[in-house]
């Protein structure tokens, strides 16, 4: 019997002391890196098309056109990580802009009218939240419904013509702080704040937990419904702010503000490596993806690519990003 002699193997090195996976590997498997690399490539290609792309002011100026959508995409990212989705905020931007414009046209002082816009945002979030959480309906269906509903409501309020906003309210995108247009600045600040909340607070941690395994999260005492409701309210109010910023940029409000914007929001989140099934993703990814998308779309305009073709490119980008993200995540979990 070899029992005793074989026991010598007890001295074999313990695996606990084995080194963790190499640092570079941990870095490599982050999907944000993919976004970053794409961003650099896009910058190189774009600047070979037009030297404008070497001018930071030009890029910042182009970004103001997407900054409002990008702001909402940040919150949408958190929503997707929590395991839900909201497709209605682009319509919500239009509805909030319309109620705001309508109110101020009816003689309500601007600060109050802004309040009306914000309340509209909250109400939209509340409705989505109640339908999804109280009635336990799938958020993708609910928010496709409210996407249509909010847009329709905007048209009912504004009719087919545009409502002008007062002269002094126009041009938020022309106001520069430290040389940066205000919408871009707002986007950057929001990124920093949300990035911090998501990565360093219990609220953020619990968002990852409920997105990863809702049943285990429930067992761990996490109040998922509260968190999800707060996210619906947050995305509603962010959409209303974004809507009013759009109104200021355009100088007038129509019901078709940000028409189709939900696609770009989803695209930004996906390009940033957010996992469509929840539980993974980061604000940094969406932040980078927003810049990537602006450079790609502006680059295509500069390169005189047909608008239809531009759409194709965006569609292909969306599909590739989902496949790549899935691939990266599946590799980390063989």
């Amino acid at each position: 019997m070899s029992v005793t002699e074989k026991s010598e193997i007890a001295a074999a090195p313990q695996r606990e002391s084995a080194s963790a996976r190499p640092r570079w590997q941990v870095m490599l498997i982050r999907p944000e890196l993919m976004t970053f690399v794409l961003l650099i490539i896009a910058l190189i290609v774009a600047s070979s098309l037009s030297p404008y792309f070497l001018d930071i002011a030009y890029i910042l100026d182009s970004f103001t056109l997407s900054a409002e959508l990008a702001m909402v995409a940040l919150v949408l990212t958190i929503m997707i990580i929590a395991g839900e989705i909201d497709l209605s905020p682009a319509s919500g931007m239009a509805l909030a802009a319309c109620t705001f414009a309508y109110a101020q046209q009816a003689g309500v002082p601007i600060p109050l009218a802004v309040g009306v816009g914000l309340l509209t945002g909250l109400a939209m979030g509340l409705l989505n939240g109640i339908l999804v959480i109280r009635f336990q309906l799938p958020s993708i269906i609910v928010t496709i419904g409210t996407l249509i509903f909010y847009r329709g409501l905007a048209q009912v309020i504004a009719g087919d013509q545009s409502i002008r906003v007062p002269e002094w309210f126009i041009g938020i995108n022309r106001v520069l702080v430290f040389g940066i247009p205000v919408p871009v600045l707002v986007f950057v600040i929001l990124s920093v704040v949300l990035g911090f909340v998501l990565s360093s607070t219990i609220y953020g941690r619990q968002i990852y937990l409920i997105g990863t395994n809702p049943i285990a999260a429930r067992h761990a005492g996490i109040r998922a419904n509260r968190i999800k409701m707060s996210l619906f309210l947050l995305i509603g109010i962010t959409a209303s702010i974004a809507g009013m910023m759009t109104a200021s940029r355009l100088g007038s409000v129509r019901y078709d503000i940000a028409l189709g914007g939900e696609l770009q929001m989803v695209l930004m989140a996906m390009l940033g490596g957010t996992y469509i099934f929840g539980g993974r993703g980061s604000i940094l990814g969406t932040f980078l993806a927003a810049w990537l998308l602006v450079i790609v779309s502006t680059g295509m305009i500069v390169a005189n690519i047909l608008p239809a073709m531009q759409l194709c490119v965006l569609g292909v980008l969306l599909i590739i990003s989902i496949i790549a993200t899935n691939f990266i995540y599946s590799r980390t979990q063989r």
């Binding site: 990852y208 937990l209 990863t212 395994n213 049943i215 285990a216 539980g279 993974r280 995540y329 979990q333």
Partner: peptide, 9 residues
């Protein structure tokens, strides 16, 4: 697996 772990975390 169902009620305990958050597998990817």
């Amino acid at each position: 697996a169902v009620a305990g772990i958050f597998s990817s975390l």
